[in-house]
Design a protein around this nucleic acid. Structure first.
Length: 892
RNA sequence: GCACGCUUAGCUCAGUUGGUUAGAGCACCUCGUUUACACCGAGGGGGUCCAAGGUUCGAGUCCUUGAGCGUGCACCA
């Protein structure tokens, strides 16, 4: 009698019935919080710590499949460590994503109300953004819960909340006081649409075809795709070694006719000019081009602003002033053509233009006074002289404190650092951390442009608003990555260096994020942590790939191929969604997600559920803590169980989640469901059945928390209140049995071969067959007789001595041999053919092994174990071939 | 241009430090309602591991070159 009636448990697992309820129970239990785990004795106070900070999703909308992948990986690892008994903390949070969020709200306001942010006061506008962010936050945290993430909500953080703001101001002030933050007029990426600077990393280059003009510039021909920037060009640059221009000397003045009339141009020789490009001569526009800016700096040249911050030409353009650049471009060419200065126009020129990847427009390089972090400046740091670049490089070096998975991203990381320029951290948007710098004019002049400070401007940088009259705060806000960079420790109580969490959980154990933000975020966290805490922010960086559709395309709204993790979870369950994102994926490689894959994982969820139904209804509720192996099948299962526990544990420890999941799935579906459950139907070892399933459920829990917890609440195989705090299986090696001579494997193989023969000869499943066996083979079969009969559909096992039964065909599995009685059923010709093919295969294989062994250099150089193995293999193959020959002879 | 990665069954991918006759899921073919599951079970077909060289007793795995694809960075006067 089972302990449950079949009707107690529904046939199909229904995630909707369970998921919401289970998550609520987990959350209310408090076990996501390591303090509760310690209090209730689930975790020892002195246990090893394992901590992750959740890469905070942007409050720009909702979670997509990439977030779901991140949550699946992190939650699996976190649940594993919690079950293992580690003090496990996973800190959740969201990111204000300054530019992205503000531009989103601006576009909504533009669309719905036809207004711009300048129709509001700063406070009114921030209020609107704040409301939007709050809505997004609520939606996102809801989604994080839906995915089953076991984050500690009591420690939730927001990059723009009061604690994080305090950390940001403290960090800014320290860098400022140490001279590593400076304000300077440098060339920056200006987005005229969003009216703000953006960092180099936020630029996305797009290929574009546009006319390329060759213009007569005195004795030279120069080329440009941007004639509208050429008004002020008065320096003409060429390579110093270029023989074509050796008659011109560096510094030489040349009088020539240009857009606005006659000008005096100065010749500059600089090695950055590529003689092979165009005519090898160019003019420079230092105000609107980063390379030109560098040349101008090298030679002490001046530059003039041609294009205003609104994207229109300035006074220097004379009659063109006030025109948007694209309109001006055409008219300037008309004028140059009238003057006869256009040499030729290449209409098919392809070059790349810079755009703001955060939803803005075409980037216009501009010289602007901005705040920068000096990455190449030397400073004293804990007794050594170093630079911020060096601090970023150091922990990632070979043998360093940080391991990046996959390893090849370390090279990409170093390459990025090598090319890094000073980091522009100020933005002209409103949503974000206001720069903690205040200005006060000594004189009475209260100019508009207070940031353009003169000698009599007093500057104050501090964590709090300064005392006294007349202070005005810098209107700019900080790059969102500045606050994100502090994330591993600002969430743990920093700048209080004695904060309990900071001491207990920093450096964090793992940072799991997409490879696309290695530079934006990972590098900056390393910088900040090394600088402020003199330690790495995390030990391991696990970079997951981009989630793509079944054909490998990026998911996008316009393609209509997005898969919403919430929709999938709603229909097929969060477990199926999670498993789809874990299986078949490796760090650094993109993840393909398709409906077929999700369905197959949904099927597996149901398989697990039905195993639970079987265990629940077909076995006695017994104390299964000490299972006794009674049969060959039992021993086989125990052995495999030991292997799978060790394997899954090892794979998770190495962050090989896909391997853990795939191997566990093969074991569960194949070894346990297809074989052990079938043998249990005749052997009925309830203790072992329940023991094994208990372990299987715990092994699955990190990956499929909902269905396993549902099964736990249904069957209660483990004594824990919730599976989340059940002990991670550690296979007791004393229970580990080495199955005798692999007997069950042979029986299994024999069964498969009999089934194969049945299929080949189309034997009706209703017809049961008879087999004969003798000697050791008979003993093995008799020991497994009931299982054998059931699974191979045999009605009788007969013994014989010398004479092989007539009308029978041999079935062979290693040394295990049986004769299948097939009187009147089998076409002997076909059987001869089948056996002949099998014999040919064996002979071919034996020959190749013999050749190998006959090769003296193999015998001499290969390790002994390999040679022995090969010899054994040859012997076995020869025995098999002999048997086959005998069988063939017997039916000839 | 520089760097990195990928190329294994029709499709999507595993394949750990080189070592049994290369695996899985999906798809495909045949059979099937046996007391967990048709979101199932049983059986099967299908691969010169991109190409050419090389190292080695032994290469899907290591080296060189090439091809195709992808990504990052730089340049684009």
């Amino acid at each position: 009698m089972g302990n449950m009636e079949p009707n107690d448990i529904p046939k199909a697992y229904d995630p909707k019935e369970w998921e919401g309820k289970l998550y609520r129970q987990w959350e209310e239990s408090g076990f996501f919080n390591p303090d509760t785990c310690i209090e209730k004795g689930v975790t020892k106070a002195g246990a090893e710590a394992f901590s992750i900070v959740l890469p905070p999703p942007n409050v720009t909308g909702h979670l997509h499949a990439g977030h779901a992948a991140m949550l699946a990986v992190e939650d699996s690892i976190v649940r594993y460590h919690r079950m293992k008994g580690d003090r496990t903390l996973w800190v959740p949070g969201t990111d204000h994503a300054a530019i992205a969020t503000q531009s989103k709200v601006e576009s909504i306001i533009r669309k719905e109300e036809g207004k711009t942010r300048h129709d509001f006061s700063r406070e009114e506008f921030l209020d609107r953004v704040g409301k939007f962010a709050q809505d997004s936050h609520d939606r996102i945290t809801h989604q994080v819960r839906k995915m089953g993430s076991s984050v500690d909500w009591s420690r939730e953080a927001y990059t723009l909340d009061e604690k994080r703001s305090f950390a940001v101001r403290t960090a800014f002030k320290r860098l400022y006081d140490d001279g590593l933050i400076y304000q300077g007029d440098r060339i920056v990426n200006w987005d005229p649409e969003l009216q703000t600077t953006v960092s180099d990393d936020e630029i996305e280059r797009k290929e574009e075809k546009s006319p390329f003009y060759y213009l007569q510039y005195g004795p030279f021909v120069i080329s440009t795709s941007r004639p509208e920037t050429k008004f002020g060009d008065k320096y003409v640059v060429m390579h110093p070694e270029d023989a074509r221009y050796s008659e011109y000397a560096h510094g030489q003045q040349i009088s020539l006719e240009w857009i606005g009339g006659n000008i005096a141009a100065t010749v500059i020789k600089d090695e950055s000019v590529d003689p092979a490009f165009g005519t090898g001569v160019m003019t420079i526009t230092p105000w609107h081009d980063a390379v030109d800016f560098d040349i101008a700096e090298r030679h002490g040249l001046d530059g003039e602003q041609i294009i205003g911050f609104d994207g229109k030409l300035l006074g220097i353009a004379g009659s063109f002033s006030g025109m948007p650049i694209l309109e001006a471009r055409k008219k300037i060419i008309d004028l140059l053509q009238e003057k006869g200065l256009v040499v030729k126009i290449d209409e098919d020129y392809v070059h790349s233009v810079a755009t703001n990847s955060r939803g803005g427009g075409l980037i216009e390089p501009q010289i602007k006074k901005q705040w920068f972090i000096a990455v190449n400046k030397e400073f004293e740091h804990h007794g050594t002289t170093t630079t911020l670049k060096e601090l970023m490089r150091h922990p990632v070096r070979p043998g360093g404190e940080i391991t990046i998975l996959p390893k090849q991203f370390e090279k990409v990381y170093f390459h990025w650092i090598d090319n890094l320029r000073d980091w522009c951290i100020s933005r002209q948007i409103w949503y974000g951390h206001r720069i903690p710098v205040w200005y006060r004019k000594q004189s009475t002049d209260n100019s508009e442009q207070i940031t353009n400070k003169t000698e009599d401007t007093e500057v104050y940088c501090g964590v709090e608003t300064p005392e006294g009259e007349g202070w005005k705060q810098d209107p700019d806000t900080l790059d969102t990555w500045f606050s994100s960079g502090l994330w591993t420790f600002s969430t743990l109580g920093w700048p209080d260096e004695n904060a309990k969490d900071l001491i207990a959980y920093h450096p964090t154990s793992l940072l799991e994020t997409g490879y696309d933000i290695l530079f934006f975020w990972v590098a900056r966290m390393i910088l900040m942590s090394e600088y402020f805490l003199n330690t790495q922010p995390f030990d391991t960086v696990y970079l997951h790939g981009l989630v793509r559709d079944g054909q490998g395309r990026k998911m996008s709204k316009s393609l209509g191929n997005t898969i919403d993790p919430l929709d999938v979870s709603e229909v097929h369950g969060a477990d199926a969604m999670r498993l789809s994102l874990l299986s078949g994926t490796t760090p650094g490689n993109d993840i393909r997600l398709s409906d077929e894959k999700i369905l197959s994982m949904r099927n597996f969820t149901n398989k697990l559920w039905n195993l639970a139904r079987y265990v629940g209804t077909m076995s006695e509720s017994v104390d299964h803590s000490n299972p006794e192996p009674k049969s060959d099948a039992d021993k086989d299962l125990l052995q495999k169980l030991g292997t799978i526990v060790a394997g899954v544990t090892r794979h998770i420890d190495r962050y090989e989640l896909s391997m853990a999941v795939d191997e566990l799935r093969d074991f569960t579906w194949g070894d346990f469901a297809d074989w052990y459950v079938e043998t249990h139907k005749v052997e009925k070892n309830d203790t072992l059945l329940r023991y094994a399933f208990d372990i299987i459920i715990r092994l699955w829990h990190p990956f499929m928390p909902f269905v396993t917890e549902a099964i736990h609440q249904t069957l209660r195989l483990d004594k824990s209140e919730y599976l989340i705090i059940a002990r991670w299986p550690e296979f007791d090696t004393t229970k580990r049995v080495i199955a005798d001579e692999n007997r069950f494997a042979l029986v299994k193989d024999l069964i498969i071969k009999i089934r194969n023969i049945r299929a080949i000869y189309r034997i009706d499943p209703a017809v049961k067959l008879t087999v004969s066996a003798r000697g050791a083979s008979e003993r093995t079969i008799r020991d497994n007789e009931e299982v054998f009969k059931r699974l191979a559909r045999i009605n009788e096992v007969k013994s014989f001595d010398t004479d092989i039964p007539t009308h029978s065909i041999p079935v062979q599995s290693g040394l295990l041999q049986a004769f299948l009685h097939l009187e009147g059923i089998v076409d002997l010709d076909a059987e001869r053919k089948r056996l002949g093919k099998e014999l040919a295969d064996s002979e071919r294989y034996a020959a190749s092994l013999e050749a190998k062994l006959g090769n003296p250099s193999f015998a001499n150089r290969a390790p002994e174990a390999i040679v022995t193995q090969t010899r054994t293999l040859l012997d076995e193959t020869n025995v098999k071939a002999d048997e086959l020959r005998g069988h063939l002879a017997s039916i000839s």
